[in-house]
Amino acid sequence: MIEIDIRVRAGGFALDAAFTLPPGFISVFGPSGAGKTTLLRAVAGLETPDEGRIAIDGAPVFDSAAGIALPPETRRFGYVFQDARLFPHLSVRGNLLYGYRRAANHAVRLDDIVDTLAIAPLLDRSPRALSGGERQRVALGRALLMQPRLLLMDEPLAGVDAARKIEIIALIRTVRRFVPAIVHVSHDLDEVSALADHIVLIEAGRTVRAAPADALLRDPDFAIAQREDARAILDGTIAAHGDAITTVALGRGTLAIPRAPLPRGAAVRLQVFARDVSLALVPPQSISVRNITPARIVAIRERSDAQVLIALETDAGALMALVTRDAVRDLNLAPGREVFALVKAVAVR
C-alpha cells in the first residue's frame, strides 16, 4: 500500500494530503497551484513535511511521530521532473546509468529500457542536443533504471508537443511493468484518464477524494462530470481485427474501434466522451454509427449548462451520455429505463 498523510507548509502555501491506495498507477489530478508538485517533492524527500507519515508497504520513509525522515538518496523513489533535469556533463548513456550504478539490484536492465523507450540512437548524444520529447524519455529511463520502489512523475507531458503526447502516454503505459507503483501528478484530464488506476483529486492544497479512476470519472455527482469533456473509461483487450475495424472485448460486451495496430490480446483503455453518446428508444436502422448497444439508465443529473448527464450501464461497461432537457422529456427518460446507446466515437489509449 502507498500511505500518505502529511501536512506541509512551504512559503505561505499549506498542503494537507491524505490517501492510502494499493500499488499501481496513482494520478493526482488538480489545477495548477493546487499543491501537486509540493506533494511529490514531500514524497521524494525534497521537502520535509511539518508532520505526518509517508510509507510504502508498511515501511515509513517519513514519520514525524517516530522521528523518521529518510533523505531522498536512500528512499529509492524515482523522480521524473517536469523539466527532465538531465546532467549536462554526461552523455545520454551516462545519465541513464547514473542511478543504475548506485542501485543495489539490477532487475531492470539498460537494454530493456533502451529498447522500450526507443532511445538507442540517442545514447552517445549530449542531453543538450535532445528535443523535449526525447529529453523526457531519457529522464523516464534514468528514473526506471535506478530500480525504484515507487516512481514519481511530475507533469511528464508538460514540455511535449501535442503530436508527441499520445506517443509518450503509450510509452508510460508500457513502462509500468518495470516499477511496482507510480504516483503521477497532472492537470491534464486526457493524460490522467489515459493512465490512472486510481485518481486522487486535489484542490487548493487539500486532497478531496481518492477512488478508482473509472468509478471517479463517471460519478455523475462529481465535479468532473460537470466538465464539457466528461467521459467514461473502459479497460479491455483487443479481440479481433477486421478490414477497417478492430473489436475490443470489454466485460460481457464489445466495442468497435477504427483498426488499431495492436496485437490480439493487447490491453487497451478506451475513452468514451459523454458528448459522443446519443440515446434511442428502439435500435436505429440505416445509421453510420457502428457501436449501438443496449443500455439501462442508472442516473439522470441536470447540469449547470442546461444539458443533462445520463449515467448508463451496458454489457461493455458504464457509459455516460450528454443530452438536452427536451430529449429527456420527449423520450421520457428515467432511471431504470432500457434504451440503446449510440457511441459515435471512441478514443483509444
Binding site: 525534497l46 531522498p72 546532467f87 542501485a103 528514473a143
Partner: peptide, 20 residues
C-alpha cells in the same frame, strides 16, 4: 534542480561532489 535529481537517484553528499 540537478542536485535534487542526483539525490533522488541515490547519490549521497560526497558522491554528488565527485559525480556532479
Amino acid at each position: 534542480g540537478l542536485n535534487e535529481a542526483a539525490r533522488t537517484l541515490g547519490a549521497g553528499f560526497w558522491d554528488r561532489m565527485i559525480s556532479l
